[in-house]
Amino acid sequence: MDMRLEVVLLPVADVDRAKQFYAQRMGFRLDVDKPVKDDYRVVHLTPPGSGCSIAFGVGVTTAEPGSVQGLQLVVTDIERARDQLIEGGVDVSEIFHDATGLFHHAGEVDRVPGLAAGRASYGSFASFADPDGNGWLLQEITERLPGR
């Protein structure tokens, strides 16, 4: 049986501010904004080209706003993606790679400025946060590992 990750819930403090950030600054497609009643509203958006969406709202999660960290958006050209986000008003870190050359450490530990050596697929990152502090990473993947 297939199992697909299709929606990630984000805890946010201000639904309209988050909606503006993701729809206007990030360029995510607004799929749903459904206020059901005063204590229940669902907002659902999808990143360009993604099969997985984000959702937030009122009454959809008990997690603390800003507590989600390490969400990753995969791009084929990290420099271009970073530039587009900056043009949209997103505060994005400089591009970095991990000192180990493998994935990345939590937080900012062992970040080395610049692209991964030889611009190795899976090796270059840039980070940013939404207005509540939920943490995101861009990861450049130009050639997928076998089976992916």
Rank of each mutant, 00 (worst) to 15 (best):
D39T: 15
V12L: 02
F103C: 09
H44P: 01
Q20S: 13
A81P: 03
H105R: 08
F56S: 06
G133Q: 03
H44S: 14
R17F: 02
A116R: 04
I141F: 01
E94C: 04
V60L: 09
G107L: 07
H104R: 07
I54W: 02
L10E: 07
S67P: 14
R41E: 10
L115K: 04
S67A: 13
W136D: 08
I95N: 00
A23M: 12
S124C: 04
F128W: 03
L71G: 06
G88Q: 10
A116S: 13
M1A: 14
D39M: 08
D130W: 00
E64Q: 11
K37L: 11
P35M: 12
P48G: 06
R111W: 02
M26W: 02
Y22G: 00
D110Y: 08
R148C: 12
H104W: 11
D83W: 07
F96P: 04
N134P: 11
G57R: 00
L73V: 14
L30I: 09
G51Q: 15
F103H: 11
P11C: 07
D33S: 14
E79Y: 06
A106E: 11
E6Q: 08
F96K: 02
D16Y: 01
I78K: 03
A106G: 04
A81L: 10
L138C: 06
E6D: 13
E79K: 08
H105F: 03
V58I: 14
Q139V: 09
F96I: 04
G27P: 09
K37D: 15
V32A: 13
H104T: 10
G135L: 12
S124R: 00
D33C: 09
G57N: 00
D98Y: 01
